[in-house]
């Protein structure tokens, strides 16, 4: 059955590359394919294992269709959390994020939306803000195809960043110097979006680990 094992390894590699099937889903399909191959070989002893495997694989249909169906039917908690993260992220750009109050006469109040803060960060060298947003962009492939490189690291990084942002409010000028700044709801929503996305990536990573199976009790 070396030939069959080789075919299955090749199939798994291919599917890992081109579909969004998780290792667990592939395990289940592999078991199905092996059972089907056994049946095909029983029905026609002249078949080679490779040919029997091809028949079994064709019987399963297009795995791209299957992976879409799985995505629709399967456990989608991680995708939902990541989706909420992105929804919050987008919303934060529209909400007021920072409020400056100039205490010199005449007193002036300036409120900036998330987008305005981001734009100011890009144009005026506040790269830390911009980098945070860039990290969020790295999670997009996961939302799109269910696959992302270094998902655990990204989840850890974004999660810590979100918590840090929530806890410290970055390095905002606070009081003194003639004006004070305060964080608005947009900033909190922005920081929370990172935590939400991190939770989504973490849940996804948990589902993405290979299965652990137990031997049945005798």
């Amino acid at each position: 059955m070396c030939e069959l094992d080789r075919e299955i390894r090749r199939w798994r590699r291919q599917e890992m590359r081109r579909s969004s099937l998780s290792p667990r889903e592939l395990d289940e399909l592999e078991d199905h394919l092996r059972a089907r191959v056994e049946l095909e070989l029983e029905l026609d002893a002249r078949l080679t294992p490779a040919r029997a495997f091809a028949i079994a694989r064709d019987g399963l249909g297009e795995t791209s269709v299957l992976s879409r169906e799985f995505a629709r039917a399967g456990a989608v908690r991680w995708r939902r959390a990541l989706g909420y993260g992105w929804a919050l992220f987008a919303l934060s750009f529209l909400l007021p994020a920072l409020r400056f109050e100039f205490t010199h006469e005449p007193v002036q109040v300036l409120s900036l939306t998330g987008y305005e803060v981001f734009w100011a960060a890009v144009t005026e060298g506040g790269f830390r803000h911009a980098l945070c947003n860039l990290a969020m962009l790295l999670t997009l492939p996961a939302l799109w195809r269910g696959r992302v490189r270094g998902g655990r690291w990204l989840a850890g990084g974004i999660g810590l960043m979100g918590l840090y942002l929530l806890a410290t409010g970055l390095s905002l000028p606070r009081g003194g110097g003639g004006f004070s700044a305060s964080l608005q709801v947009g900033y909190l929503v922005w920081a929370a979006s990172f935590v939400c996305a991190a939770v989504g990536l973490w849940l996804r990573a948990r589902e993405w680990v290979p299965t652990t199976a137990e031997r049945p009790e005798a």
Binding site: H32, R36, L60, V65, L66, E69, F70, R72, G74
Partner: peptide
């Protein structure tokens, strides 16, 4: 063959 697994999930 491919119809069953999405149903199960």
């Amino acid at each position: 063959d491919g119809m069953l697994y999405p149903v199960l999930h």
